[in-house]
Nucleic acid binder design. Sequence first.
DNA 1: ATGCCTGAAGGGTTCAGA
Length: 287
Amino acid sequence: MRIATWNVNSVKQRLPRLLPWLDERRPDVVCLQETKLADGAFAELLADELAERDYAVAVHGEAAWNGVAILSRVGLEDVVPGLPGGPGFPHPEARAVSATCGGIRVVSVYVPNGRTPGSEHYEYKLAWLASLRDMIAAGPEATAVCGDMNIAPADEDLFDPDAYVGQTHVTAPERAALAELQSLGLRDVMRDRWPDERVFTYWDYRAGMFHQDLGMRIDLILASETVAGRVQASWVDRHARKGSGPSDHAPVIVDLDEAPDGDIGPVVPPPSRPVVKRGAKKLPQSP
DNA sequence: ATGCCTGAAGGGTTCAGA
């Protein structure tokens, strides 16, 4: 069973990349973020294309901003939009959707950005993460929280830690909130598999950041013990960040043993990129 | 010059993203 998560940065704009990617990677479960479409518009755009590919769909979106979805070919039950009782800004936003797929409680999340440490939006981010933790704590053991956490778990997840001092995504309260979520027994399966690898999932569109591999690892698959124990492969699909019209995020893909159809899928793929010593690369400055 | 891209909304420019 193959699970993937991808912040597509507008599913409408990403359609020419998303559909071929589904056909190439053939994930069983896909968590999408930043769909940026209301549910009706999502269905109008994608319902037929996804049905052709045997995907059932759970969407929770809004026009223009945010929006999450789960696509599944291994069942889609007990769909819950949002974080019940969770905070808003000021109103609840479409940043989470949960469903049970192939026996796993799958949650697609788009954690608030936070904008500036100490701001209202930052407090909202922390409150939102606490609410997510509460929901996961009340759920079943077999769980996978997948999505754009908007937190780099450690300095190793940044191309240049110095460039992020004082910024969101790296502050102690954000990392503590993530650690609290993980303390429920969720493992960062990507980092477990590649403990010393330079591996990023997001690269700014500007200044050729991707081509210099100046990025961050903020898209995670957090799996409970029984799920993490089934991981056969875990990688970042950097190919999806290349070429024309990419999202600024790359998908994270995890393969579990015992796919429902008995097919474990492709053999273990190569690491996301060759081992490169972490350097003190700096963001190129404008003249 | 936080706005070197990109997307979206609503107009001909602003805001958000991380």
